[in-house]
Amino acid sequence: MSIQHFRVALIPFFAAFCLPVFAHPETLVKVKDAEDQLGARVGYIELDLNSGKILESFRPEERFPMMSTFKVLLCGAVLSRVDAGQEQLGRRIHYSQNDLVKYSPVTEKHLTDGMTVRELCSAAITMSDNTAANLLLTTIGGPKELTAFLHNMGDHVTRLDRWEPELNEAIPNDERDTTMPAAMATTLRKLLTGELLTLASRQQLIDWMEADKVAGPLLRSALPAGWFIADKSGASERGSRGIIAALGPDGKPSRIVVIYTTGSQATMDERNRQIAEIGASLIKHW
Protein backbone atom coordinates (compact mmCIF):
# COMPACT_ATOMS: atom_id res chain seq x y z
CA MET A 1 0.00 0.00 0.00
CA SER A 2 1.42 3.38 -1.02
CA ILE A 3 1.69 6.33 1.32
CA GLN A 4 -1.23 7.95 -0.50
CA HIS A 5 -3.44 4.88 -0.16
CA PHE A 6 -2.42 4.57 3.48
CA ARG A 7 -3.50 8.16 4.02
CA VAL A 8 -7.01 7.79 2.58
CA ALA A 9 -7.66 4.36 4.04
CA LEU A 10 -7.00 5.58 7.57
CA ILE A 11 -9.17 8.72 7.50
CA PRO A 12 -12.16 6.92 9.10
CA PHE A 13 -9.81 5.12 11.53
CA PHE A 14 -8.30 8.35 12.82
CA ALA A 15 -11.76 9.74 13.61
CA ALA A 16 -12.02 7.65 16.76
CA PHE A 17 -8.65 8.78 18.08
CA CYS A 18 -8.23 12.40 17.00
CA LEU A 19 -7.80 15.13 19.56
CA PRO A 20 -10.47 17.83 19.86
CA VAL A 21 -10.30 20.46 17.15
CA PHE A 22 -10.69 24.07 18.24
CA ALA A 23 -11.86 26.93 16.07
CA HIS A 24 -9.90 30.15 15.81
CA PRO A 25 -11.94 33.27 15.03
CA GLU A 26 -8.80 35.09 13.90
CA THR A 27 -9.27 33.52 10.48
CA LEU A 28 -12.75 35.01 10.20
CA VAL A 29 -11.27 38.42 10.92
CA LYS A 30 -9.08 37.91 7.85
CA VAL A 31 -12.06 36.71 5.79
CA LYS A 32 -13.96 39.89 6.65
CA ASP A 33 -10.87 41.94 5.84
CA ALA A 34 -10.69 40.21 2.45
CA GLU A 35 -14.26 41.33 1.78
CA ASP A 36 -13.26 44.91 2.53
CA GLN A 37 -10.13 44.70 0.41
CA LEU A 38 -11.92 43.12 -2.55
CA GLY A 39 -15.17 45.04 -2.24
CA ALA A 40 -16.97 41.75 -2.73
CA ARG A 41 -18.76 38.97 -0.92
CA VAL A 42 -16.54 36.21 0.45
CA GLY A 43 -17.85 32.84 1.56
CA TYR A 44 -15.76 30.63 3.82
CA ILE A 45 -16.13 27.36 5.65
CA GLU A 46 -13.70 25.15 7.53
CA LEU A 47 -14.86 21.60 8.24
CA ASP A 48 -13.23 18.86 10.28
CA LEU A 49 -12.68 16.04 7.80
CA ASN A 50 -13.18 13.25 10.30
CA SER A 51 -16.25 14.42 12.20
CA GLY A 52 -17.82 16.81 9.71
CA LYS A 53 -18.01 19.48 12.41
CA ILE A 54 -18.04 23.07 11.18
CA LEU A 55 -15.08 24.84 12.77
CA GLU A 56 -15.56 28.30 11.28
CA SER A 57 -17.81 29.78 8.64
CA PHE A 58 -18.71 33.08 7.02
CA ARG A 59 -21.67 33.37 4.66
CA PRO A 60 -21.87 29.54 4.61
CA GLU A 61 -25.39 29.45 3.19
CA GLU A 62 -25.12 32.16 0.58
CA ARG A 63 -24.87 31.20 -3.07
CA PHE A 64 -21.66 31.68 -5.03
CA PRO A 65 -20.69 30.70 -8.59
CA MET A 66 -19.06 27.26 -8.60
CA MET A 67 -16.73 28.06 -11.46
CA SER A 68 -14.31 25.21 -12.16
CA THR A 69 -14.60 23.75 -8.66
CA PHE A 70 -17.51 21.73 -10.07
CA LYS A 71 -14.99 19.58 -11.93
CA VAL A 72 -14.18 17.65 -8.75
CA LEU A 73 -17.87 16.82 -8.33
CA LEU A 74 -18.06 15.86 -12.00
CA CYS A 75 -15.19 13.41 -11.69
CA GLY A 76 -16.79 12.07 -8.52
CA ALA A 77 -19.90 11.32 -10.59
CA VAL A 78 -17.76 9.67 -13.26
CA LEU A 79 -16.03 7.51 -10.65
CA SER A 80 -19.41 6.52 -9.23
CA ARG A 81 -20.34 5.21 -12.68
CA VAL A 82 -17.02 3.37 -12.86
CA ASP A 83 -17.75 1.73 -9.51
CA ALA A 84 -21.18 0.69 -10.79
CA GLY A 85 -19.72 -0.90 -13.92
CA GLN A 86 -21.28 1.75 -16.17
CA GLU A 87 -18.01 3.39 -17.21
CA GLN A 88 -14.34 2.50 -17.61
CA LEU A 89 -11.47 4.85 -16.84
CA GLY A 90 -9.55 3.33 -19.73
CA ARG A 91 -12.27 4.00 -22.32
CA ARG A 92 -10.96 6.28 -25.05
CA ILE A 93 -13.10 9.19 -26.18
CA HIS A 94 -12.54 10.78 -29.57
CA TYR A 95 -13.56 14.34 -30.33
CA SER A 96 -13.11 16.99 -33.02
CA GLN A 97 -11.98 20.58 -33.39
CA ASN A 98 -15.63 21.62 -33.11
CA ASP A 99 -15.74 20.24 -29.56
CA LEU A 100 -12.91 22.46 -28.32
CA VAL A 101 -13.89 25.44 -26.18
CA LYS A 102 -11.91 28.26 -24.61
CA TYR A 103 -9.08 27.16 -22.30
CA SER A 104 -8.40 23.56 -23.26
CA PRO A 105 -4.61 23.24 -22.86
CA VAL A 106 -4.61 19.44 -22.74
CA THR A 107 -7.45 18.34 -25.00
CA GLU A 108 -6.32 20.61 -27.83
CA LYS A 109 -3.17 18.48 -28.12
CA HIS A 110 -5.03 15.18 -28.57
CA LEU A 111 -7.38 15.78 -31.47
CA THR A 112 -5.88 12.90 -33.43
CA ASP A 113 -5.70 10.23 -30.74
CA GLY A 114 -8.43 11.24 -28.28
CA MET A 115 -8.15 10.78 -24.52
CA THR A 116 -9.25 8.19 -21.99
CA VAL A 117 -11.82 8.95 -19.32
CA ARG A 118 -8.99 8.82 -16.77
CA GLU A 119 -6.94 11.32 -18.78
CA LEU A 120 -9.93 13.62 -19.18
CA CYS A 121 -10.57 13.70 -15.44
CA SER A 122 -6.91 14.40 -14.82
CA ALA A 123 -6.98 17.24 -17.35
CA ALA A 124 -10.21 18.67 -15.92
CA ILE A 125 -8.94 18.73 -12.34
CA THR A 126 -5.20 19.28 -12.61
CA MET A 127 -5.28 21.74 -15.53
CA SER A 128 -8.93 22.87 -15.38
CA ASP A 129 -9.34 21.91 -19.04
CA ASN A 130 -12.81 23.03 -20.15
CA THR A 131 -13.25 20.71 -23.11
CA ALA A 132 -12.32 17.77 -20.89
CA ALA A 133 -15.09 18.82 -18.52
CA ASN A 134 -17.64 19.05 -21.33
CA LEU A 135 -16.67 15.63 -22.70
CA LEU A 136 -17.03 14.14 -19.21
CA LEU A 137 -20.38 15.87 -18.73
CA THR A 138 -21.53 14.19 -21.93
CA THR A 139 -20.64 10.77 -20.52
CA ILE A 140 -22.95 11.24 -17.53
CA GLY A 141 -25.82 12.84 -19.45
CA GLY A 142 -25.09 16.55 -19.10
CA PRO A 143 -25.28 19.21 -16.37
CA LYS A 144 -28.74 18.16 -15.16
CA GLU A 145 -27.48 14.65 -14.47
CA LEU A 146 -24.63 16.01 -12.37
CA THR A 147 -27.20 17.95 -10.36
CA ALA A 148 -29.26 14.76 -9.99
CA PHE A 149 -26.16 12.89 -8.78
CA LEU A 150 -25.61 15.56 -6.13
CA HIS A 151 -29.26 15.42 -5.08
CA ASN A 152 -28.93 11.67 -4.61
CA MET A 153 -25.97 12.40 -2.32
CA GLY A 154 -28.19 14.63 -0.21
CA ASP A 155 -26.94 17.93 -1.67
CA HIS A 156 -30.08 19.81 -2.71
CA VAL A 157 -28.23 23.12 -3.00
CA THR A 158 -25.43 22.66 -5.53
CA ARG A 159 -26.56 22.78 -9.13
CA LEU A 160 -24.98 22.74 -12.56
CA ASP A 161 -27.12 24.09 -15.38
CA ARG A 162 -24.79 24.89 -18.26
CA TRP A 163 -21.65 23.74 -20.01
CA GLU A 164 -18.20 25.28 -20.24
CA PRO A 165 -17.61 28.15 -20.68
CA GLU A 166 -21.15 29.58 -20.31
CA LEU A 167 -21.41 28.35 -16.71
CA ASN A 168 -18.87 31.01 -15.72
CA GLU A 169 -21.18 33.96 -16.41
CA ALA A 170 -21.69 34.60 -12.66
CA ILE A 171 -24.65 36.97 -12.98
CA PRO A 172 -25.65 38.38 -9.57
CA ASN A 173 -28.68 36.64 -8.03
CA ASP A 174 -28.63 33.97 -10.76
CA GLU A 175 -28.79 30.57 -9.06
CA ARG A 176 -27.59 28.68 -12.10
CA ASP A 177 -24.26 26.91 -11.68
CA THR A 178 -23.94 27.86 -8.01
CA THR A 179 -23.36 26.29 -4.63
CA MET A 180 -23.04 27.37 -1.01
CA PRO A 181 -19.81 26.94 0.98
CA ALA A 182 -21.52 24.64 3.50
CA ALA A 183 -23.05 22.46 0.80
CA MET A 184 -19.82 22.18 -1.17
CA ALA A 185 -17.76 21.32 1.91
CA THR A 186 -20.21 18.62 2.99
CA THR A 187 -20.41 17.12 -0.48
CA LEU A 188 -16.63 17.11 -0.92
CA ARG A 189 -16.25 15.39 2.45
CA LYS A 190 -18.74 12.70 1.40
CA LEU A 191 -16.85 12.09 -1.83
CA LEU A 192 -13.49 11.80 -0.08
CA THR A 193 -14.47 9.88 3.06
CA GLY A 194 -17.95 8.41 2.62
CA GLU A 195 -19.17 5.12 1.23
CA LEU A 196 -20.51 6.59 -2.01
CA LEU A 197 -17.27 5.72 -3.82
CA THR A 198 -15.04 2.71 -3.40
CA LEU A 199 -11.73 3.20 -1.62
CA ALA A 200 -9.93 3.01 -4.97
CA SER A 201 -12.14 5.73 -6.44
CA ARG A 202 -11.82 7.96 -3.38
CA GLN A 203 -8.07 7.59 -3.66
CA GLN A 204 -8.14 8.40 -7.35
CA LEU A 205 -10.16 11.55 -6.76
CA ILE A 206 -7.86 12.88 -4.05
CA ASP A 207 -4.82 11.97 -6.17
CA TRP A 208 -6.11 14.12 -9.01
CA MET A 209 -6.74 16.99 -6.61
CA GLU A 210 -3.31 16.60 -5.04
CA ALA A 211 -1.78 16.90 -8.51
CA ASP A 212 -3.55 20.22 -9.21
CA LYS A 213 -1.19 22.40 -11.27
CA VAL A 214 -3.14 25.66 -11.51
CA ALA A 215 -3.83 26.60 -7.88
CA GLY A 216 -0.30 27.56 -6.87
CA PRO A 217 -0.99 31.24 -6.00
CA LEU A 218 -3.82 30.36 -3.60
CA LEU A 219 -3.65 28.13 -0.50
CA ARG A 220 -0.59 26.27 -1.72
CA SER A 221 1.46 29.46 -1.55
CA ALA A 222 0.88 29.61 2.23
CA LEU A 223 1.51 25.93 2.92
CA PRO A 224 4.44 25.01 5.19
CA ALA A 225 6.75 22.15 4.27
CA GLY A 226 5.32 18.75 5.09
CA TRP A 227 1.70 19.79 4.81
CA PHE A 228 -0.74 17.98 2.53
CA ILE A 229 -3.14 19.66 0.14
CA ALA A 230 -5.50 18.40 -2.52
CA ASP A 231 -7.46 21.21 -4.14
CA LYS A 232 -9.35 22.62 -7.11
CA SER A 233 -9.59 26.30 -7.91
CA GLY A 234 -11.98 28.25 -10.10
CA ALA A 235 -12.29 31.68 -11.70
CA SER A 236 -15.05 33.31 -13.69
CA GLU A 237 -16.68 36.56 -14.69
CA ARG A 238 -17.50 39.47 -12.38
CA GLY A 239 -14.46 39.06 -10.20
CA SER A 240 -15.31 35.54 -9.10
CA ARG A 241 -12.64 33.27 -7.62
CA GLY A 242 -12.77 30.17 -5.49
CA ILE A 243 -11.06 27.09 -4.15
CA ILE A 244 -12.07 23.85 -2.47
CA ALA A 245 -9.42 21.86 -0.62
CA ALA A 246 -8.60 19.03 1.74
CA LEU A 247 -5.47 19.87 3.71
CA GLY A 248 -3.56 19.29 6.90
CA PRO A 249 -0.17 18.91 8.57
CA ASP A 250 1.94 15.75 8.82
CA GLY A 251 1.28 14.77 5.23
CA LYS A 252 -2.41 13.94 5.57
CA PRO A 253 -5.67 15.86 5.17
CA SER A 254 -7.63 16.69 8.30
CA ARG A 255 -9.87 19.59 7.23
CA ILE A 256 -11.98 20.69 4.30
CA VAL A 257 -11.73 24.37 3.39
CA VAL A 258 -13.98 26.14 0.88
CA ILE A 259 -13.50 29.77 -0.14
CA TYR A 260 -15.56 31.65 -2.73
CA THR A 261 -15.70 35.29 -3.70
CA THR A 262 -17.72 37.13 -6.32
CA GLY A 263 -18.51 40.69 -7.37
CA SER A 264 -15.01 42.14 -7.07
CA GLN A 265 -13.40 44.70 -9.34
CA ALA A 266 -9.97 43.61 -8.11
CA THR A 267 -7.38 42.04 -10.37
CA MET A 268 -6.85 38.30 -10.44
CA ASP A 269 -3.54 38.76 -8.61
CA GLU A 270 -5.27 40.65 -5.80
CA ARG A 271 -8.01 38.04 -5.51
CA ASN A 272 -5.35 35.35 -5.34
CA ARG A 273 -3.45 37.30 -2.69
CA GLN A 274 -6.49 37.69 -0.46
CA ILE A 275 -7.28 33.97 -0.63
CA ALA A 276 -3.63 33.15 0.08
CA GLU A 277 -3.75 35.44 3.14
CA ILE A 278 -6.87 33.67 4.39
CA GLY A 279 -4.91 30.43 4.01
CA ALA A 280 -1.95 31.87 5.89
CA SER A 281 -4.22 32.88 8.78
CA LEU A 282 -5.85 29.45 8.79
CA ILE A 283 -2.48 27.73 9.02
CA LYS A 284 -1.10 30.14 11.62
CA HIS A 285 -4.05 29.47 13.92
CA TRP A 286 -4.45 25.79 13.08
Rank of each mutant, 00 (worst) to 15 (best):
R63H: 06
L223A: 08
T267S: 12
A148V: 13
L197T: 02
W286A: 00
A211R: 13
D113Y: 10
P181N: 00
R273T: 11
E87K: 01
L223W: 02
S281K: 11
T186R: 14
E195D: 14
E87Q: 06
P65R: 03
H24V: 08
L74S: 00
I54E: 09
L150S: 05
V72D: 03
T193L: 11
I229D: 00
Y44E: 00
P25H: 10
F22I: 10
E87M: 09
V101G: 03
Y95G: 00
M268R: 05
E277V: 09
R271L: 15
T186C: 14
G226W: 03
V78E: 00
I283M: 08
H94N: 12
G43A: 04
M127L: 11
K252E: 12
H24R: 08
R63P: 05
E46D: 05
E210K: 11
G242F: 00
S254G: 10
I229H: 00
Q203K: 15
D177S: 01
E237K: 06
Q88L: 15
R91E: 03
R255S: 02
N134Y: 00
P65C: 04
S80Y: 13
T193N: 12
N98Y: 15
S281C: 11
L160A: 08
P143W: 00
G239H: 07
S264I: 06
L55H: 06
L137I: 07
A133S: 09
L137Y: 07
E166Q: 10
S96V: 15
A133T: 08
G43Y: 00
F13I: 14
N173V: 06
F149V: 07
T158N: 01
A40G: 15
I244M: 05
I3R: 10
T126V: 08
L89S: 05
K144W: 08
R241T: 02
L196G: 11
S221M: 09
S281V: 14
L55T: 06
T69I: 09
R176T: 04
L74Q: 00
A170G: 11
S104C: 05
P172N: 11
N173F: 10
N168R: 02
P12T: 14
D99A: 12
W208F: 05
D177A: 01
R159L: 04
G90I: 10
N98C: 11
H285D: 05
I229V: 06
S2T: 14
W286G: 01
T178V: 02
Q97L: 13
A230D: 02
E61T: 14
I278T: 00
D161G: 01
E61C: 12
P65S: 06
S80M: 11
A84V: 12
E108D: 11
A235C: 04
R220I: 01
A222Q: 13
I243A: 01
P12G: 15
M66V: 09
K252T: 12
L55V: 08
T147R: 06
E277C: 06
L150W: 05
L167P: 01
T179C: 02
L196P: 13
P224A: 04
H5A: 15
S2C: 11
E237D: 08
S264Y: 05
T262K: 10
R59Q: 04
S221I: 09
S57P: 00
A16V: 15
T187V: 05
L223Y: 02
Y260W: 02
E56S: 09
V42L: 09
K32R: 13
S2V: 10
R176N: 07
C18V: 12
P249V: 04
G76C: 04
R63C: 03
E175P: 14
T186S: 15
S264R: 06
T107R: 02
M127V: 12
I243V: 11
R202A: 10
D33G: 12
F149C: 06
S254M: 11
S240A: 13
M67L: 11
T107L: 07
D174A: 04
P224V: 02
A245V: 03
E62R: 04
